[in-house]
Design a protein around this nucleic acid. Structure first.
Lengths: 190, 190
DNA sequence: ACCTGAACACCGTTCAAGT
DNA sequence: ACCTGAACACCGTTCAAGT
């Protein structure tokens, strides 16, 4: 005789996401997630294949949210100065990382068993890609997008890890970087 | 009655480093390290405070090695074109990351309980810092160093994580990035 | 069809007992 | 002074038994 469902995949992923932000990756255990949704740990395996699979689902849901936000900013600024639009996009990424550091890290520095679908990351960086094509021209668009993405994710990763230890103004360093890189891609002097 | 030492801190750190590169961070357990040096896991606690402490020691030894390599390259190229010297330094960092990906990640994306001494990272980036001061001038030296470090570590992190999924030539993207950024810091056209 | 308790093989870590 | 086995409180995961 079938029993009524006591939870759902969505509820599990949301609980996992909350635990991840509250307690970090090591606080997200199958037992803690199960506790939060009101079942026992073995029941989770009816809906996810493994803990890594659950982490992947959290990463997918987080990257989809990030993509939406980046798209919204790109749309709102459409037609403006590309160098300034690039800075807007980079600030949006950074703001997202500050709001959801653990989820951000899960996307851009996933543990070995967790891999996003290639399309998911591509969708999130599509707005950026369009902008770098505009800035650097179609021949260098891919290289330019990789340069910006590498800088932004590297900057944010170091910031979140507390690696900027020499003092100075982190905001200023961010603005310095995005402005110089934006201009370099457009080959503008100064 | 004292028993003779059956291992040493150096031997433990070396074993941990080898296990880290061979099996990743999750393969580095106190029991596996103990096995490798021929004692039981509880004995390790005579020489390290915790597993995180052991990871920190591995990170410190790795970053010291990296610092030596970067210094050697910087010394060898002293007096040359600063933009080319910067590219040399960046390639050296990338080569190190390819040789020792797990150790590299431990330095630039350490887990939450593992923190390098501030001086260690500063010492490793000293050569880079000197070069960016030369390129961008003393007023922007810190911001310039952060821009280069962020780009290089971000690029390598994405490469190691397999995040460059749109095809294209990763070597070309690396050379494109370092050359554009180097010139941008020096404010050179093209 | 979903959920559960019990169990297995692992962890990091502590500690009393051995030499 | 160092090393050990035993133990504790955790893991992820499997599986037979319940409803």
């Amino acid at each position: 005789m079938p029993t009524p469902d006591r939870t759902s995949l969505d509820e599990i992923v949301d609980a996992a996401r909350d635990l991840l932000e509250a307690d970090g990756a090591e606080g997200l255990s199958m037992r803690s997630v199960a506790d939060r949704v009101g079942v026992r740990a073995p029941s989770l395996y009816k809906r996810v294949r493994s803990r890594d699979d659950l982490l992947r689902l959290v990463a997918e849901s987080t990257v989809a949210e990030l993509a939406e936000r980046l798209d919204a900013v790109a749309t709102a600024s459409a037609g403006g100065d590309p160098v300034l639009r690039l800075a807007d996009l980079a600030r949006t990424l950074r703001r997202f990382a500050h709001e959801r550091p653990a989820g951000y890290r899960l996307i851009f520095a996933p543990p070995s068993g967790v891999a996003l679908a290639p399309e998911s990351l591509a969708r999130a960086t599509a707005a950026l890609f369009a902008l770098t094509a505009e800035l650097a021209g179609p021949d260098d668009a891919l290289e330019a997008a990789r340069t910006v993405t590498a800088w932004a994710t590297g900057f944010i990763a170091m910031e979140l890890a507390g690696s900027f230890q020499l003092g100075g103004d982190v905001e200023r360093a961010f603005e310095f970087g995005v402005s110089r890189i934006g201009k370099a891609l457009a080959r503008l002097a100064d």
